[in-house]
Amino acid sequence: MSKPIGLLVVDDHPVVRDGLTGMFARDPEFAVLGEAADGAEAVRLARRLRPDVILMDLRMPGLDGVSAIRELAGQAPECRVLVLTTYDTDSYVLPAIEAGATGYLLKDAPREELLRAVRAAAKGEPVLAPSVAALLMNRVRKPAPGPLSPREVEVLELVAGGATNRVAAAELFLTEATVKSHLLNIYAKLGVNDRAAAITEAFHRGLLVPRQPD
């Protein structure tokens, strides 16, 4: 008989940990090596126990799941992390996968689906909940925003220099409404929500260049 798949269960809710531990304990194919209530404890236990698969919640006090996944990628890279959470939005899915998670499942997954996912994760095979797979597919299909137009760059340069919408409009012989429209397009293209973030992101991308002192 092959060696059982070693598991580490990470969740800040004791009831969830108990439920998962009990479920896997009934199957000789798996062995729960330990439990952790937060990300920091998960990293410590993973270094010591070297589980094959870590079932990782994301929202936890202290070190959260995504931060723990990043640390594990450097300190215990042989441990596969299978996220098990209730959240399937961009703000949770993408950071977790980028941090190094092998799979991403939701807590309402049926028992057999979870068992299959752990088996696959132990082999290094990616596992995604259907809603998560659809989300990632939609992001891949969505065309990337185009570059800023010359006029948008002019507006952003003035705003970065401290100009108000009214001043920028006068400088460029535009209406304030047109300047506002340009700013909204800039926000969408840069993936930000306000002018301060737009300026920061534009400098980061090299779209704006810091002025040299006279």
Rank of each mutant, 00 (worst) to 15 (best):
149 S>Q: 13
103 G>C: 07
155 V>R: 06
153 V>G: 01
132 V>C: 01
160 A>Y: 04
114 L>W: 03
152 E>T: 10
130 P>T: 06
131 S>A: 12
91 S>Y: 14
107 K>E: 08
177 A>F: 13
107 K>F: 05
174 L>K: 01
163 A>D: 15
167 V>R: 09
95 P>E: 11
112 E>P: 02
113 E>T: 14
124 G>I: 07
155 V>A: 10
108 D>V: 03
169 A>G: 01
137 M>D: 12
128 L>C: 01
131 S>G: 10
158 L>P: 01
109 A>Y: 09
165 N>M: 14
105 L>D: 14
132 V>S: 08
158 L>K: 00
130 P>L: 13
83 V>K: 06
108 D>Q: 15
137 M>K: 05
89 T>D: 12
120 A>P: 03
159 V>H: 00
170 A>Q: 13
139 R>M: 11
136 L>N: 00
125 E>W: 05
143 P>S: 06
166 R>P: 00
160 A>D: 12
82 L>P: 08
109 A>W: 13
124 G>R: 04
106 L>R: 07
91 S>R: 10
101 A>L: 03
154 E>W: 04
93 V>N: 10
169 A>S: 10
101 A>H: 08
148 L>P: 02
176 E>M: 07
134 A>R: 15
139 R>C: 02
144 A>S: 12
81 V>P: 03
129 A>C: 02
112 E>F: 09
85 T>K: 07
119 R>W: 10
143 P>L: 04
126 P>T: 09
173 F>I: 06
118 V>P: 02
101 A>Q: 05
86 T>M: 14
152 E>D: 14
124 G>N: 11
157 E>N: 11
102 T>C: 04
144 A>C: 02
153 V>M: 07
154 E>H: 11
156 L>D: 05
166 R>Q: 14
137 M>R: 12
119 R>C: 03
116 R>N: 08
95 P>C: 04
162 G>W: 12
166 R>E: 15
91 S>D: 15
130 P>F: 05
162 G>R: 08
171 E>I: 00
97 I>L: 15
133 A>P: 05
155 V>F: 11
134 A>S: 12
98 E>I: 05
175 T>Y: 09
137 M>E: 15
149 S>K: 06
117 A>T: 09
95 P>D: 12
119 R>P: 02
99 A>T: 15
99 A>F: 08
148 L>Q: 09
131 S>P: 06
152 E>K: 01
139 R>T: 03
167 V>D: 15
113 E>A: 08
155 V>I: 09
97 I>F: 02
108 D>G: 09
145 P>T: 10
158 L>Y: 05
88 D>K: 01
133 A>W: 10
126 P>Q: 14
146 G>L: 08
105 L>Y: 05
114 L>D: 13
163 A>K: 10
123 K>T: 00
134 A>Q: 11
114 L>V: 14
123 K>N: 06
176 E>D: 09
139 R>E: 12
157 E>W: 08
103 G>M: 11
175 T>W: 06
122 A>N: 14
126 P>L: 03
97 I>W: 06
135 L>Q: 03
141 R>H: 02
114 L>N: 04
150 P>N: 15
124 G>A: 04
100 G>V: 13
140 V>E: 14
110 P>C: 00
109 A>P: 03
84 L>A: 02
